[in-house]
Design a protein around this nucleic acid. Structure first.
Length: 427
RNA sequence: GGGGAGAUUCCCGAGUGGUCAAAGGGAACAGACUGUAAAUCUGUCGCCGUACGGCUUCGAAGGUUCGAAUCCUUCUCUCCCCA
């Protein structure tokens, strides 16, 4: 997706840009305005300035976050300028959206360190060269009490209360703190300061983005175009992807882990991930979906393609190919994974003297729990009872909690469930 | 300043003196099946113990009681109402 040289900007045709940029979008205010700006930019050779704000509390970026990052990338693909705005100042206020707990105040050093973490992760998707990083304390810090009050004068309470979150809370008689009103204003001011053409955010940001849009004309600026990306469902397919739900795919996770997690999503969810987490065009995705419906494309193959696409995006193609091969080996062919953790038997809690001169004995629940093949000894017992434990391909009977070490082959392979393996070496 | 609601096992959410390791749903895990770690079905899902069982949990600390997640006191936190 080349976007012209640095010297003389050339942009793809407006309709082509529009289709690509609109993919997966929830809100677009307004499409007409976006078209006009794209036309103007194409005429003048000036890229659009696209702003996206991020909270300074460095999270581990997961697939859900990448929906927005990917949309930023799409703008970059089309040759536009993306501003990655770190809300170090607004972070102090605390965005009222969603959570109620006030965030811990961060020091300058922490903010900078978090920014680095962001960069390291976000630039797996974004082009570092085409991204400008800014901090909003730069201008908001200078605003002062007077500036803030003047800023606040540009908006009114009725508009604020239009925000669904505020309105429902207000009508339900719940508390709304004054500072919560200041957050959208501060965010809006960022757009003024940066003279942005487009602001992007998650759907939950729609109101905040619109405040920026509303306020810009009073600074004699054209209102920014507002676009929102949807929230991605987690791998369970029901809840939103979030760390607390434990249904995430982290982009820093190992290739094998990402590949496997993608393969574990339901067939239906797969199309959603295609739409929101890849650069495939909507038309291409719909075609695949049709083919899958007709039976000409196996859903499994479509999912493998998705997994490959995602892994290679975060870890490169080589890693993606390796992850795929490994997946095929373990699940399609039922073979043993390339690398299996090993344990060297040594005297200790795992290996104990058996009774009645039986020599050394391995207590399986202890071993499984100690080596992380089961969460606890109790859990290991349950797995044993469920027939989930195999030794060299033979199911271990429930009652065999202890194994005589002397009978064990060197390099014996212990398998628990479908995915956990352990090779036992003799000391 | 005054009044009220609430904090339950990973998440949501029942439970108001014993039958509670605590309903139900979700997630997770296992088995069967398969097209894959999809779907579906079945089972498991605090810890320790082969087992009978034992131990530790229901915001925190005390107390009442033969016995408490459930009652009382204090504390912490969240929220609401009236000033």
């Amino acid at each position: 997706m080349g976007a012209g040289s640095e010297k003389k900007k050339e942009f793809p045709p407006v309709d082509e840009q529009l289709t690509y940029l609109k993919k997966g979008i929830v809100d677009l205010l307004t499409e007409g305005e976006l078209r006009e700006r794209l036309q103007a930019s194409r005429r003048s050779g000036r890229p659009l300035r696209v702003k996206v704000g991020f909270d300074p509390s460095a999270p581990d970026i997961h697939l859900g976050h990448t929906v927005l990052l990917r949309k930023m990338k799409h703008f970059q693909d089309m040759g536009h300028e993306v501003i990655f705005l770190i809300g170090d100042f607004t972070g102090l206020i605390g965005d009222p959206t969603g959570r109620s707990r006030t965030r811990p105040q961060l020091t300058r050093q922490e903010v900078l360190a978090n920014a680095e973490t962001y960069k390291e992760q976000a630039f797996r998707i974004l082009s570092a060269a085409k991204t400008t990083i800014r901090f909003n304390s730069e201008w908001l810090g200078k605003l002062g009490a007077e500036g803030f009050i003047r800023l606040a004068a540009r908006y009114n309470v009725a508009r604020m209360l239009e925000r669904r979150d505020f309105r429902t809370r207000y009508e339900a008689g719940e508390s709304i703190r004054m500072h919560e009103f200041l957050y959208p204003l501060a965010q809006a001011y960022d757009s003024v300061e940066l003279r942005v053409d487009v602001e992007l955010g998650g759907t939950d940001q729609l109101f905040n983005l619109n405040v920026g849009r509303d306020i810009m004309p009073s600074y004699k600026l054209p209102p920014q175009v507002v676009m929102t990306t949807p929230l991605l469902e987690g791998i369970d397919g029901s809840e939103k992807m979030s760390k607390s739900m434990g249904n995430t795919i982290g982009i820093s996770e190992s290739p094998g882990e990402i590949f496997g997690k993608v393969m574990s999503i339901s067939d239906g969810l797969m199309w959603r991930y295609y739409l929101l987490c890849t650069d495939f065009s909507q038309a291409a995705i719909e075609t695949m979906q049709e083919e899958a419906g007709k039976g000409t494309l196996h859903p499994r193959d479509a999912k493998i393609r998705l997994a490959r696409e995602l892994v290679s995006g975060f870890h490169g193609e080589v890693a993606a190919r390796a992850a795929e091969e490994e997946f095929q080996r373990i699940f399609s062919r039922g073979e043993v994974p390339e690398e299996v953790p090993e344990i060297c038997l040594a005297e200790g809690p795992v290996l104990e003297p058996g009774e009645g001169g039986r020599g050394w004995v391995i207590h399986l629940p202890v071993l499984l729990a100690a080596e992380g093949l089961a969460a606890s000894r109790s859990a290991a017992r349950r797995l044993l009872a469920q027939g989930a434990v195999y030794l060299d391909g033979t199911r271990v009977q429930e009652e065999h909690l202890e194994m005589e070490a002397g009978r064990l082959q060197d390099g014996a392979l212990l398998k628990v469930g479908k995915r956990r393996y352990l090779r036992i070496r003799k000391a």
